[in-house]
Design a protein around this nucleic acid. Structure first.
Lengths: 130, 130
DNA sequence: CCTATATTAAACTATATGGTTAACTAACGT
DNA sequence: ACGTTAGTTAACCATATAGTTTAATATAGG
């Protein structure tokens, strides 16, 4: 087991940049929404959109670089399938903030005191509760 | 109570674009990480970064437009505070995908069959399980 | 072999992004 | 009143993004 797995080395900014930028576009989010229902060919994925096939192809490449889709090439057909794994990185990032809307004020205060801290700037005495 | 609250009207793409693009930059994520520890002035927020105050000021404006921070102007000092609310929209979006890494395969199959469906393209018989 | 199909590659355009420096505005301390 | 501090605005630059149209590539099917 790697040290990084034990240390919870927070998040990988490079990956997070890739994934967040990938999902920060509504066309690509729509593509993912379609793909969770099952793999599809590029042409079929492009069909519902009011843009060229080439444009969609590029969006797919962005998703692919972020590893949000995988491509299975079969002859001339590229079959794309959804890969959820990179979203776990987003989830992990959100973990640091979820406490601000799920927990009680009490838990929040505990959280802030806990050195659950990404910056090393541990405590300057100004906790924020609201 | 509004209808939209009952219908789970999925997600607001405009807001999601704003928020996701805001957090898709590591500098802005670092700013948020700093701000969860408590409000801070623009100058202090900028200090740790190897870039001009102006650059940080612009990043803060992006975060502000996404409503991830609020600004309390007191004289010439702008005090910024973290606002978690917009991240709930991201959380809500992730809800559609979380099932792919948290649940059992069984639950996943149920999910796909459920018409928990963003596209209206309900079922073409090709479910994806891995 | 020929032609249609599936997809990417290339070249281009327009706009957005992330950064800079310089100038400006406003408020503070003395 | 004066200089300093806090912050934004303006103008600019380089690169990235999202789209286009026109080729190019490769496979499939008569």
């Amino acid at each position: 087991m790697l040290a990084s797995a034990l240390i919870d080395e927070d998040v990988d900014d490079d990956r997070l940049d890739l994934v967040l930028r990938a999902i920060a576009d509504r066309t690509r989010r729509a593509l993912l929404a379609r793909l969770v229902q099952g793999p599809a060919r590029v042409t079929d994925l492009a069909a519902p959109f009011d843009m060229s096939l080439v444009a969609v192809s590029k969006h797919l490449k962005v998703l692919e670089r972020a590893r949000l889709i995988e491509r299975d090439i079969d002859g001339r057909v590229h079959r794309c399938s959804f890969q959820a794994e990179p979203l776990r990185e987003v989830e992990r990032w959100l973990d640091h903030y979820r406490v601000f809307w799920t927990d009680t004020l009490d838990a929040l205060a505990r959280h802030v005191e806990d050195g659950d801290d990404q910056t090393g700037n541990s405590d300057d005495g100004k906790e924020q509760v609201s």
